[in-house]
């Protein structure tokens, strides 16, 4: 048992797992060259990852295998990080009692929390993305929720919404697309009772009752030839706590760098 723990907490395993994770990530990026996989990943973004994994009807086999391998490696990496932090870094911090080792230990602990939160954000809460709505249209969400688009205000040239993906992006300059003035007025109902109402702008979602209603983009409705919107509805209690720890992670890394830098200068004198 001691041998297993020693192996699981070793720096050698860390290096191997980091290289493996890099390879997996790059493979994932490479796989998106195939249309079926590209759209498969796109569908993954529409749901909480756990919901996608458990309920989605048409899993792409390549994505599924890739995802399982990624999760297994990430779990092993998490275990290695926890054991390495407590078995090696904490022990060294207590033994040597210098600021450099203590900061290094803190950096690792904060990153263990960030990793755990990242994993939790992917499995808890609710998310439904890719909701296409035209004016006065309603979309039924689960658990008796309903989203209604009351109004779209789009003051710019509608031809802007007709182009293909690349030209669409290139034409969206600040002069041609007034993102602070175009909006979608939305209402969220629970069992026919209004719970959230507001105007969603690009980069400015509606927040209320724990929900975030995000306006992804404006598109052209092919049937009515009028602007439509793509909406994402999400609810995740951990999102903003995750961001706090993310920021804390950066600050602790910076603190470690300062301590490390100074220590070396002192020694070289």
């Amino acid at each position: 048992m001691k041998k297993i723990i020693k192996f699981l907490s070793s720096l050698k395993l860390t290096a191997i797992l980091v290289i493996l994770l890099v390879a997996i990530m790059l493979t994932g990026g490479f796989l998106t060259r195939w249309d079926s996989i590209y759209y498969g990943f796109k569908e993954m973004n529409n749901l909480i990852t756990l919901d996608w994994f458990l309920n989605h009807q048409s899993h792409n086999t390549a994505i599924l295998i890739w995802f399982v391998v990624l999760c297994a490696t990430a779990v092993l990496f998490g275990i290695n990080m926890v054991l390495c932090s407590f078995d090696n870094l904490l022990r060294v911090s207590i033994k040597r009692k210098n600021l450099k080792n203590i900061t290094l230990f803190v950096v690792h602990i904060v990153f263990v929390i960030i990793l755990s939160m990242h994993a939790l954000v992917l499995v808890i809460g609710y998310k439904q993305g890719g909701i296409v709505l035209t004016e006065n249209e309603t979309y039924k969400l689960k658990d008796g929720y309903e989203l209604k688009l009351e109004e779209i205000k789009f003051i710019d040239n509608k031809a802007l919404l007709k182009g293909d993906k690349k030209s669409h992006r290139l034409e969206m300059t600040l002069d041609s697309f007034h993102y602070k003035e175009n909006y979608a007025k939305l209402t969220l109902y629970k069992d026919n009772k209004e719970i959230v109402r507001g105007e969603a702008y690009i980069f400015q979602p509606i927040f209320g009752e724990g929900f975030q209603i995000t306006l992804d983009k404006f598109i052209m409705d092919k049937k009515t030839k009028q602007p439509a919107v793509i909406i994402t509805v999400g609810k995740n209690p951990l999102t903003w706590i995750f961001f706090v720890f993310y920021g804390l992670g950066i600050i602790t890394m910076l603190a470690y760098l300062v301590v490390r830098w100074k220590f070396q200068i002192t020694r070289s004198k």
Binding site: L122, G129, F203, D216, T232, F243
Partner: peptide, 12 residues
């Protein structure tokens, strides 16, 4: 998070 409703995207 503000533009697409999630801090992580499954994309290249």
């Amino acid at each position: 998070q503000l533009a697409y409703g999630d801090s992580w995207r499954w994309s290249k």
